[in-house]
Amino acid sequence: MSMAPEPSRLAKMWDSDFAWQFRTSPVAIISAAVTLILVLSAVFAPLIAPYNPFDPGSLNLMNGFTPPSTPNQFTQDQFLLGTDDQGRDVFSTILYGMRISLFVGFSAVAFAMVLGITLGLVAGYVGGWTETFIMRIADVQLTFPSILVAMLITGVAKGFTPVEYRDSMAIIVLIVAIGLSDWVQFARVVRGSTLVEKNKEYVQAAKLIGRKPYFIMLKHILPNVLSPVLVIATISLALAIIAEATLSFLGVGAPPTQPSLGTLIRIGQGYLYSGEWWILLFPSITLLALALAVNLLGDWLRDALNPKLR
């Protein structure tokens, strides 16, 4: 009797339902590819970018306002996507700006996730007065649009930070503001699943052998409530990127010394009327592509992982 050779782990993954759904969905493949390319080019910006836009030594003011892919009239230098008013290469500033946007986006979602999961777990597992308190706050916060919450938190935080730290704290303030505006989703979903899980036998068994509550929450319940969290996290990432861009565009987000895509669009809007369209257009397209790709990926992930969430 011959046995079929055990398929390798990679082959198993390739054959899984999840992978099959991915392979057969063009939207998923394209959005994943775009996301991957953008994230990688942001991570490796120092290697890819032809110039370092934050090194004043590499700037030549004569190169200001060079249109894309045409030689500058004074220096004959060429830039793929043109230059801004100070002669900074637009392509490089976009790569570096995307770093800030993605860093803020990922950190804010991570912050919201940790906060939301913790509060959701505690609310669901402990119940009683604690649960009412946490979920009431969540309900109240849910009635405000999250971008408004983020704006208000930015404003309050700015009020509380001493003047000399305002610029250096700006990025952290952004992360906290966007994170705090977004934890409710996580908390609600995690609480819902925790309520279901906590009455199952394995949790009862763990209680019976005397496991501490925090141990049960972390080691037993948490792994079983994570899959919807992943979906929300992806969609939250798209929203966080847009929220960051919006705040920076309004001039209350990333400071001009560390421009994100939103800051670049804000700067570019100033040249809309005078004809330097490239300073505005390319950061806008990048932001759109990034937000749209992550959003579509999240939508697809939601359908693929958990049809019940629809």
Binding site: A245, T246, I265, L272, A291, L292, N295
Partner: peptide, 14 residues
């Protein structure tokens, strides 16, 4: 739905 509000505004202005 997926366009950020401020980009819609800029697009209309343009």
């Amino acid at each position: 739905v997926s366009l950020p509000t401020f980009l819609i505004g800029i697009l209309l202005i343009y």
